[in-house]
Design a protein around this nucleic acid. Structure first.
Lengths: 242, 242
DNA sequence: AAGTGGTCTAGACCACACC
DNA sequence: GTGTGGTCTAGACCACTTC
């Protein structure tokens, strides 16, 4: 008894640091501005560099900061909204979308995708790689899996591979009657190849959007799109009357 | 010249460690099984504990592991799919939904929410806190903001606050004609209060789902739901014919 | 060459769960 | 009390960008 209520819970240093930095970002820094380097910041707050980094990591996760090796830490602009909702309920590759076909090959999909497609474990499917750009920046990398049965007209084309073949697959898809699509969103970490295309380090947090396209009573295609979690806010369009 | 192609890129230790552990999880561990503790694991792989922890953090981010202080690290079950799509296009609080009202107060919303609502900066609104449980586990915490103008019948009720008042607000909402809803999903880190209700540490990664409900030509309510990113996969229902 | 963030180490102590 | 994961330190070196 007698002790006045002051101790409270020992809030972690990095947590307190994060709130202090967050307030400073709001009041004292402009978007794009460069922060002092990590060693200076750590010294200024009287903590080890690792602790300071823990706070910066959180702020980067929340999209408040952007860190680039060899360059520095800058104040990030607000996240951009990117529409993943069904703008018009169309197949991937419609003329209006913001994706760019990069490559197309034939290969066996990951087990999880094969399960969604309902194909055999080792059965190879058309695999199209696309990139989505918004305001000049790459925001998402996608792998689209299309079983040969979904695009019967494609055999005649026989493009060698590469972007031309990718476009051919997308073109054939448009012929089908799209009956529905199911989507899911979850947190993931960027694989090495995706990270490279998104200009991020491997392992950086991404939002993985998996879409199952239905046609002819079955699954005609599956898309796995990897969005940069630091810069993107996924938007789903109004679902009733607008 | 002359040097054979062997050096390659120096892959970070924690990254390599992560893939090794990931493979081991697939082949040698069952869901729910407890892993050796971090000090033992680090010694076994010949790395510092901090490096081992970096690999574990990634695996936890991907939903492969679950770590609990004082207990240990266990193999996580596959993420559960939780529907955030518009199951029936209904107001929050409909009889069918899986949310539980916890508290209701009147307070000024955060600036970002006030902007969505179109209310004044300091204008207070009904604020309902709800929790969503699936399979007995808390998967999401939500704050629902409802301007007084949206629920004109509420003044007569004048519940004191708490769960009863929260339910009253939800009940009044059902009277309105829902015209549409817009949703967005982004990555965030759990605030202290949300973390507590979700049985996570503050700062753990969450998926923030913001929904704007339209009625009467304006915004009738805004919901900010915080989902555990480690255990949840958000699903959006089929949008055309099923 | 200089400066930045990214990785890694080998310790220490703390908060929490369980016995 | 014992054992677990969580926090923190004070260094070191590496990879990358820029000048």
């Amino acid at each position: 008894m007698g002790t006045t209520q002051l101790e409270s819970v020992p809030e972690p240093k990095y947590w307190h640091l994060k709130t202090v930095l967050s307030d400073a970002l709001d009041s004292e820094f402009a978007v794009g501005e460069i922060l002092p380097n990590e060693r200076d910041l750590a010294a200024r707050f009287g903590v080890a560099r690792a602790t300071l980094r823990q706070a910066l990591e959180q702020l980067e996760l929340e999209g408040r900061l952007q860190r680039r090796r060899g360059v520095g830490t800058t104040v990030a602009p607000p996240r951009m909204g990117v529409a993943v909702g069904d703008a018009g309920h169309v197949w991937p590759g419609a003329a209006t979308d913001s994706w760019q076909a990069v490559d197309g090959v034939e290969a066996a999909p990951p087990a999880a995708v094969a399960r969604l497609l309902g194909t055999g474990a080792e059965e190879s499917v058309h695999t199209v790689r696309r990139i989505r750009r918004t305001h000049g920046q790459a925001v998402a990398a996608e792998l689209l899996y299309v079983p040969a049965a979904s695009v019967p007209g494609l055999a005649a084309i026989d493009a060698p591979g590469g972007a031309a073949r990718a476009r051919a697959v997308l073109r054939e898809l448009q012929r089908l009657q799209l009956e529905g699509q199911e989507r899911s969103v979850e947190l993931g970490s960027a694989r090495a190849d995706d990270a490279k295309q998104l200009d991020r380090l491997p392992g950086s947090p991404v939002l993985v959007v998996t879409t199952r396209y239905s046609a002819g009573g079955g699954t005609a295609a599956v898309a796995v799109a990897t969005y940069r979690a630091d810069t993107c806010r996924l938007t789903f369009d109004g679902l009733l009357a607008g």
